[in-house]
């Protein structure tokens, strides 16, 4: 047997915390065999199934879509399912819960404050025609170019990596943080939306983008390329323009009116009857 054929191992250092005791979080070490393609999340499963079943974390989809498994891995907030151990460039994997959130247990952060901020900025379409919103009769007009103005920010999966990276949130619980502000910008720039003045009530105060100093960490760590730093600067541009009365509000996109003088092309068959 040569040295190369010996199974390689990975050392996991995991921050453990039990809320039942009065003890502080402590580091615990596990050594597991390395297999090709092992992600940080896979390694945690190996530990839970074979070594220590008491280890707790949040995860779901294993493919970077659900945003549950954000963790502080080797000095950066990342999605553990999206992080290959081989890309860390180290045989030691240090896993801690996302900072700037209270630790509920082991690797589980309390994301509640982030979602409170998110909710406070009305992250949904606000328009005067409530009836049409509740019982839509048709679509709203929106061009592809108009959609691209917010599409990037709508890829956010609320994994809280940006909040964990933000230096302002590190001390300030009042500041909304990158994710909620990026989502405010996402809905402000949506042409179907008319809620700028309502969101402004919160955004003009200390919850708003004013305590962003463009350290840029949120954009660096975002696993979906949402670029919250860009969203915050664009949001601030709109709010500054609004204060200087340079912002020209546009009415929200109108409902597409159904043409009434059309007939079905004869070569297109009727849809089959509904089965449910």
């Amino acid at each position: 047997m040569t040295a190369d054929s010996k199974p390689k191992t990975v050392l996991y250092r995991v921050l453990r915390f039990e809320p039942e005791g009065s003890s502080n979080p402590r580091w615990q070490e596990y050594t597991i065999p390395y297999t090709s393609g092992l992600t940080v999340l896979d390694g945690l499963w190996v530990i839970k199934e074979g070594v220590d079943p008491s280890l707790v974390w949040r995860s779901s989809c294993r493919m970077g879509i659900c945003g549950s498994c954000g963790m502080f891995i080797n000095g950066l907030p990342r999605l553990s399912c999206n992080t290959q151990i081989s890309e860390l460039g180290s045989s030691t994997v240090e896993v801690a819960p996302l900072p700037n959130f209270d630790i509920l247990r082991d690797l589980v952060p309390d994301l509640g404050p982030m979602f409170d901020h998110h909710q406070a900025l009305s992250p949904f379409i606000l328009r005067p025609d409530r009836e049409e919103l509740e019982k839509p009769t048709a679509e709203y007009y929106q061009s592809s170019a108009e959609m691209e103005r917010y599409l990037q920010f709508s890829y956010c999966i609320k994994c809280a990596s940006c909040i964990a990276a933000c230096p302002t949130v590190a001390t300030d619980p009042v500041y909304s943080g990158p994710m909620p502000l990026a989502q405010a910008q996402r809905y402000n720039t949506d042409t179907r939306d008319d809620g700028f003045d309502i969101r402004k009530l919160a955004l003009r105060g200390p919850q708003g983008p004013w305590r962003c100093h463009f350290a840029g960490e949120c954009s660096r760590v975002c696993p979906k390329g949402v670029d919250p730093a860009k969203a915050i600067q664009l949001l601030r541009r709109d709010l500054v323009a609004d204060y200087l009365r340079l912002r020209r509000p546009t009415p929200p996109a109108a409902v597409v009116e159904k043409p009434d003088d059309i007939a079905r092309r004869p070569d297109i068959p009727e849809a089959p009857p509904a089965t449910v």
């Binding site: 915390f17 809320p19 502080n24 979080p25 502080f72 080797n74 000095g75 950066l76 907030p77 819960p97 900072p99 700037n100 959130f101 209270d102 630790i103 509920l104 247990r105 952060p109 309390d110 509640g112 990276a165 230096p167 949130v169 590190a170 001390t171 619980p173 350290a215 840029g216 960490e217 660096r220």
Partner: peptide
């Protein structure tokens, strides 16, 4: 609701491997 884990002023200067 849990163990406080804000980085505090340490997070202004140094919070990990930042850019």
């Amino acid at each position: 609701r849990g163990h406080p884990n804000r980085l505090g002023m340490r997070g202004w200067l140094f919070g990990g491997r930042w850019g």
